[in-house]
């Protein structure tokens, strides 16, 4: 039986934890498109899920070579959404992490920071520019408020990832 769940995440690690919790309950994610998860019933805990933001779109030859490499290693690509990829591996095959070193973990967080940071900045800029213009003209400012709110939410998550980078960099000074 298949189940659809609508949910929105800003923190991909929280999303990973949720997918793994669902898997533990016997609900395995088999597809994702913006906010819509498709689950299939199966053996509880059969899969471990990981999410990654690629450098290039999944259709790019470099990304395709990378995904194929992972597939050859027994990792299944469940879904792709823009540059995001959803992977899973049979839990029985052992612990599943995409990155086991600090440098690549940091590089991954940095990619996410760029994505979120640019999105936050654009929203804040458009929001405040329109706000000033609309207030001067006496027009409704609802959309600008929305822009500003989205901008602020994304600024928060931008900072959250920055903190994670800082923590890893500190670790990296002593360990590899």
């Amino acid at each position: 039986m298949k189940t659809k769940v609508y949910k929105l995440f800003f923190d991909y690690e929280k999303e990973e934890r949720w997918l793994n919790k669902m898997s533990a309950l016997g609900l395995h994610c088999i597809d994702f498109t913006f906010g819509r998860y498709l689950f299939e019933e199966g053996a509880p805990g059969e899969y471990t899920y990981r999410i990654e933001l690629l450098d290039k779109m999944p259709s790019h030859p470099e990304s395709r070579a990378y995904i194929k490499f992972l597939e050859d290693a027994g990792i299944e690509c469940v879904a792709t959404h823009l540059r995001w990829v959803y992977f899973r591996q049979k839990t029985a095959d052992g612990p599943f992490e995409i990155y086991s070193d600090y440098n690549m973990k940091i590089a991954h967080y940095k990619r996410i920071c760029w994505l979120i940071g640019v999105f936050a900045a654009v929203n804040l800029l458009i929001g405040s520019a329109n706000m000033i213009r609309f207030v001067n003209k006496g027009l409704p400012v609802a959309v600008s408020v929305l822009n500003l709110a989205v901008g602020l939410i994304f600024t928060y998550f931008f900072a959250l990832y920055l903190l994670r980078i800082r923590k890893l960099k500190k670790e990296k000074r002593l360990h590899q």
């Binding site: 990654e52 992972l70 086991s100 690549m104």
Partner: peptide, 11 residues
Amino acid sequence: RVNLGAGTLYG
């Protein structure tokens, strides 16, 4: 002890 992540290995 050492569990190479597939992404780390690829890199």
